[in-house]
């Protein structure tokens, strides 16, 4: 019985072997070549893919690098611009602050300086400036005149001036006395902001007492609301 079993086993093994030889010796030959070829193609594709991937990776890296560099550059540029802007703003702010401080100083600490004993003379080189009703702020068109007056004062550094503040007749004499003072002082402050030394500028308010045009018209009033400049010849 055992012998039969071995015979069976051997027979099966033989069949398996034969079949396997048959399989190996017929169909698989072509397949082998093809297989090899396929493998090669695969390999090439894989290699190509690898290379491509590598290339892509490199390119990507490069691109990334470039982008990063660009980004960095842009950031740098931005930072630079920002810094520049900041610097500009800072100087501007600084300038403004200084100006404001100057004005503040002028407002807070510049007190009226009067020329009791002084002798004065007309100053045709210095242009009058005019104000709106009940106002003492320097109007835009007055700035040009004050710049000219300041330029002349810069060129004549030994000359001291007196600013007279005047009002039109329409308000009360009481209030106008204070308003004329404000006009003289705001004119003085503006000249100081243009670089004229405070101690060269004396002020006085005449309120509504000395109109340049005695008429009672809009025209006359506009002329009378003024800051007038005199040159001090002797203090």
């Amino acid at each position: 019985m055992v012998k039969n079993n071995v015979k069976y086993l051997l027979a099966v093994m033989f069949i398996v072997f034969s079949v396997s030889v048959f399989i190996n010796s017929c169909a698989p030959k072509k397949a082998k070549v093809d297989q090899a070829a396929i493998m090669k193609v695969d390999e090439r594709a894989a290699e190509e893919a690898r290379l491509k991937a590598e290339e892509e990776k490199r390119l990507k890296k490069e691109e990334e690098k470039r982008l990063k560099e660009e980004e960095m550059k842009r950031a740098e540029e931005e930072a630079r611009l920002k810094a520049e802007k900041e610097a500009r703003l800072k100087t501007e702010e600084e300038r403004k602050r200084i100006e404001e401080e100057k004005l503040k100083e002028a407002e807070g600490e510049i007190k009226p300086q009067i020329a009791r004993e002084a002798e004065t003379k007309a100053a045709p080189q210095l242009e009058d400036i005019h104000f709106d009703f009940d106002k003492s702020d320097i109007k835009t068109d007055a700035r040009e005149a004050l710049q000219k007056n300041a330029d002349w004062l810069q060129k004549n550094p030994d000359i001291k001036i007196q600013i007279e503040g005047h009002c039109d007749e329409r308000g009360t004499a009481e209030y106008n006395l204070a308003l004329g003072e404000r006009r003289a002082m705001s004119t003085k402050k503006y000249l100081i902001s243009l670089g004229i030394s405070a101690d060269r500028i004396y002020t006085i308010s005449y309120g509504e007492e000395l109109p340049i045009d005695p008429n009672h018209s809009e025209d006359a009033w506009a002329k009378n609301r003024r800051a007038h400049f005199l040159v001090i010849t002797k203090t």
Binding site: E107, G108, E109, I110, K111, P112, E174, L177, A178, E181, R182, M185, S205
Partner: peptide
């Protein structure tokens, strides 16, 4: 009295 000695009435 109204004084402007400190810069303003």
């Amino acid at each position: 009295v109204s004084l402007s000695k400190d810069g303003n009435a």
